[in-house]
Design a binder for these strands. Sequence first.
RNA 1: GUCCCCAUCGUCUAGAGGCCUAGGACACCUCCCUUUCACGGAGGCGACCGGGGUUCGAAUCCCCGUGGGGACGCCA
Length: 464
Amino acid sequence: MTVRTRFAPSPTGFLHIGGARTALFSWAYAKKHGGDFILRIEDTDVARSTPEAVQAILDGMQWLGLDYDEGPFYQMQRMDRYKQVIQKMLDEGSAYYCYCSKEELDALRESQMQQGLKPRYDGCWRPEAGKVLPSPPQDIPPVIRFKNPQSGHVVWHDLVKGEISIANQELDDLIIARADGTPTYNFCVVVDDWEMGITQVIRGDDHVNNTPRQINMLMALGATIPQYAHLSMILGSDGQKLSKRHGAVSVMQYDEDGYLPEAVLNYLARLGWSHGDDEIFSKQQFCEWFDLDHITPSAAQFNTEKLNWLNAHYIKQADNEYLVSDITKRLNKLNVVVSAQSNLSAVIDLYKERVSTLNELAANIAYFYQKPVMDQAAAEKHLTVDIKPVIATLVELLKGVDWQAEPIHQVINEVVAQYQLKFPKVAMPLRVMLTGIAQSPSIDQVMALLGKDEVLARIDSALN
RNA sequence: GUCCCCAUCGUCUAGAGGCCUAGGACACCUCCCUUUCACGGAGGCGACCGGGGUUCGAAUCCCCGUGGGGACGCCA
């Protein structure tokens, strides 16, 4: 049987890191087995779903390169089908109308909680053999509930967590259609997973408790039960749960912050899944290696340092054509304009091994294209009075040099020898004058790329 | 409260009864490289939540405890 997995986000917000990992694992599982990956937008909560959120999810998926074979399907467009299935269940007696008002249900829940009971529907409208139901009130539009079995256990072998067993006694008759007739999540999922032929449902941990209800409905419909794999959650770097108000950010924010999608993907892949001691691998390699057996059942904490390390690795690997176009945009955001024929590629070469984000890269090389911002502490430390004559001598020699790193280096050496100094004694003031700070790649290389006129101008302005 | 799940270095993890005096990676520390800062290289620090079993032998299996998390919606 062909593997068919799906990612089924609800469009109530952006695609965050947890959703992205779920999508990645579902996607990789399908790829690994030569199956299909389906994108399904679960937008039945009309009040909270927005087209912007749909777009944000699509953007996130695209940025990560998680392509889908089918979809996106929108549940709101499948209403007719859901209603047919509900009618069928009504006809067959596996679903029934319930006329309880929200107020009544709230009151019931509250009193149960107070008594230390698990809050659940009391089944007052549940039809039973020999039971006399109250007569339906005229003013209350009914909801439709699923008639869940009342005894026995639902047991499934979770592909991540192992065997999970839940007593039907713990479950109540959930609402599958609202008073306005729209079906609810648990029901739509069942119909869709069934009709879309999903073979492995890979989703967040928070759905474990929905699973037995879904299995019961699937059984009532005579559908095949898919396999389930429940992924544990990703915690924030402080160990706390991620939420909109605490730490959860859009995957697009990582783009914004200067992370490469391959780094984010690689990082996410290793969060909760492992392949021996392997840490760095391509998307391709990941698809070949990925399996559900090596997913940790416990929650994982997000760690930015490790993401940074991976990002640094992928920046080193990135080809300059890509970097030039990306960094140009980031420089523009910093109000630094770089012309198309600039030496940006060479400058990037000088810096790509020294940064961990693209933003850092852009910020670090900005001085090539605009006047450096002088760091006062560095200036005070290195731009001393006694160094002025040395630099003056250097300037004279520099004027006649063939403007390449090697000859420049030799000229500096000459001055170093002439004044009987150590190399850094000359290189450091130079570095500060040219870059504004005390750290940079080899100063001769920096000078070579900065250009003779610019170097002389900066030295001149620093000296005076 | 009830039900479900989880538990190895600070963090991500390897580990499917002997290969474990517990391996790797990030971070941290030291040294080397060096023109500063990085990169890179070599070392170092550092963990099986507790208690009972089972077994010749347990990080690995079972039970209890503790801790953490999730679910309990006419949200998904």
